[in-house]
Simulated assay, not measured.
Amino acid sequence: MTATATVSNFSYGAVTPVAAYLMACLGAALGLRCTTRSMRRVHRRAGWLALGAVSIGCGIWTMHFIAMIGFNVQGTLVGYDTPKTVLSLGVAITVVAMGVFLVGYRGRSPVNLVTAGTVTGLGVASMHYLGMAAVQTGVTLNYDVRTVALSVVVAVVAATAALWAAVSISGVWSSAAASLVMGAAVTAMHYIGMAAVSVHLTGRAVAVQPSVGMLVFLLVMLAGPLAALLFAAIIVMFDPGMMLGDDVWDRPAPAPHIIGATIPAQRREQKP
């Protein structure tokens, strides 16, 4: 006898979606600030863009697997394939780097933004479904094609908007607001993709809670990306432009002729 199993993404209530959203926002906020710095520090542009790509990529990946802590399939235990899980992190960082470097060096023209946004969005979607391919449940996960397509479209739109914000928004508070929107878009893409999942079981289904081993595995896997986000946060917070504000840091120095030490000389020139 075949039955449709209940698939839950909220085994721990609102804890996992809220935590996942906050991590997506953190990665987006750090990525925006790093990209903004790259536009103002030409001699260090590559470094800032790389740090921004790592921040956004780790934020997206961390969001995904924190959300997956709440994933549960009725009647089966959930585990993960380690190589595929690690590979999904590499994909997330790589595709974000491709988009960020493209707009960082080629500019924010519509063609560049659409191209970079499409590549990055498809990469983010690939990261999501590669992460899902790492899930081991003992049964086959089925996907609704139309819902999957919708999640890919959302990923592309979110990536394009994120890249536009990264090269167009420079203010601290504007970047913070943009990161909240970006976090919401990326998290929405994840849960739209999860809504496409269905499972068919053979035999009688029983309720199985998420295993302790699975939780430990995810926490260990999250340690690296969380450390990378902490490292990026320390660099951004100690950057003078972040602490003083863009306007103060980028304000040109006073011209020599208005410095007090030159005034007496000017006055002497005016004497007959």
Rank of each mutant, 00 (worst) to 15 (best):
1 M>H: 13
2 T>K: 15
2 T>W: 15
3 A>E: 14
4 T>F: 14
7 V>E: 07
8 S>K: 03
9 N>S: 09
13 G>L: 03
17 P>W: 10
17 P>I: 12
19 A>Q: 01
23 M>S: 13
25 C>G: 04
28 A>Y: 01
33 R>S: 07
35 T>H: 10
38 S>N: 03
38 S>L: 01
39 M>I: 01
41 R>I: 01
47 G>Q: 04
48 W>Y: 15
61 W>M: 10
61 W>P: 02
62 T>C: 07
63 M>L: 11
65 F>H: 08
67 A>R: 00
67 A>H: 00
69 I>T: 05
69 I>V: 11
72 N>M: 11
73 V>I: 15
74 Q>R: 11
76 T>F: 10
77 L>V: 08
77 L>T: 09
80 Y>C: 08
81 D>A: 11
81 D>I: 05
83 P>L: 08
85 T>N: 06
86 V>E: 03
87 L>H: 06
88 S>C: 14
90 G>N: 05
90 G>S: 12
95 V>F: 14
97 A>Q: 08
97 A>D: 05
97 A>S: 13
102 L>Q: 00
106 R>C: 11
106 R>H: 06
110 P>K: 02
110 P>D: 08
112 N>I: 08
114 V>D: 01
115 T>P: 00
116 A>M: 03
118 T>H: 01
121 G>D: 02
125 A>K: 04
125 A>V: 05
129 Y>M: 13
134 A>C: 03
135 V>A: 11
139 V>L: 13
139 V>D: 06
141 L>F: 13
142 N>P: 00
142 N>H: 12
142 N>Q: 13
144 D>V: 11
145 V>G: 00
146 R>W: 10
147 T>W: 09
154 V>S: 07
156 V>D: 02
159 A>V: 04
165 A>N: 09
165 A>T: 07
166 A>H: 05
168 S>C: 00
173 W>R: 14
175 S>I: 00
175 S>V: 00
179 S>H: 04
183 G>K: 06
186 V>H: 06
190 H>F: 04
191 Y>W: 04
192 I>D: 03
193 G>N: 01
195 A>W: 09
195 A>K: 14
196 A>R: 02
197 V>T: 05
200 H>F: 12
205 A>E: 13
205 A>H: 07
206 V>K: 08
206 V>Y: 10
208 V>Y: 05
208 V>T: 06
213 G>C: 07
213 G>P: 04
215 L>M: 09
217 F>L: 14
221 M>S: 10
221 M>N: 01
223 A>Y: 05
223 A>E: 03
223 A>Q: 03
224 G>I: 15
227 A>D: 00
228 A>G: 10
230 L>T: 14
232 A>Y: 07
232 A>M: 12
235 I>V: 15
235 I>K: 12
245 G>A: 07
245 G>F: 09
246 D>T: 04
247 D>V: 09
248 V>A: 15
249 W>E: 15
249 W>M: 14
260 G>T: 12
261 A>S: 15
262 T>R: 09
264 P>R: 00
264 P>I: 09
267 R>C: 07
268 R>F: 10
271 K>M: 12
271 K>C: 05
272 P>D: 13
272 P>C: 07
